[in-house]
Amino acid sequence: MSESTHLGSQLVNLCSVLLLLSCFAVVAQRRLSACVDLFALQSFFLATTAALVAFLTGHRHIYLAAALTVVVKVIVLPRILRKVIERLNVSRELVMNINIPAGLLICGGLVVVAFFITQPIIPLGYLLTRDSLAIALAIILIGFFTMIARKKAVTQMVGFLVMENGVFLGTTAAAYGMPLIVELGVFFDVLVAGLIAGIYTHRLQDAFDSVDTSELTALKE
């Protein structure tokens, strides 16, 4: 392994690890606005990782994906979510399905699981990014877990977006990004999903006077 690849892969690893850590920060955070900020931060790390990979491999189209990430996930989506939070007048999530220390422990377990699942395929990946695959899987799992553990629609939305970040990191790591057209489609999807979720949260607030999605069980009656 040449010195520059080694340094490069260490940098990529470091960035992926920061991505993962911001996931944990989301899990440990009660304040909704802080969750959104953390998501923005995570997306920023994601863009940095993508740009690093683009620089080190010379795949130009990843630069575009990185730029899109910055626009959509660091600027637009957090702004939408912050608006939603402002309107809703809820700032904290006090009751959760799983308390924070237990949630952190479970997420720690998920990371270990992710590393075990990817163990056999890691040596097959590209040298530069192969460790990031395990981290991507871990991020997806943690995002999913956040959606289960939290009750407020906004944090569930953040969980979903975190998952999406995980998928993006995974594709970058495993295949140095998807074809450009697919990536554009995905960004469009995410943006639309964010808008819909924002509207849906408003409707939830109107209907139940709360953004607690567990209230939805009342629809059954």
Binding site: A28, L104, L105
Partner: peptide, 10 residues
């Protein structure tokens, strides 16, 4: 401290 534990585990 739970966060510290997780950091150490990771």
């Amino acid at each position: 401290l739970g966060a510290a534990f997780i950091l150490a585990l990771l």
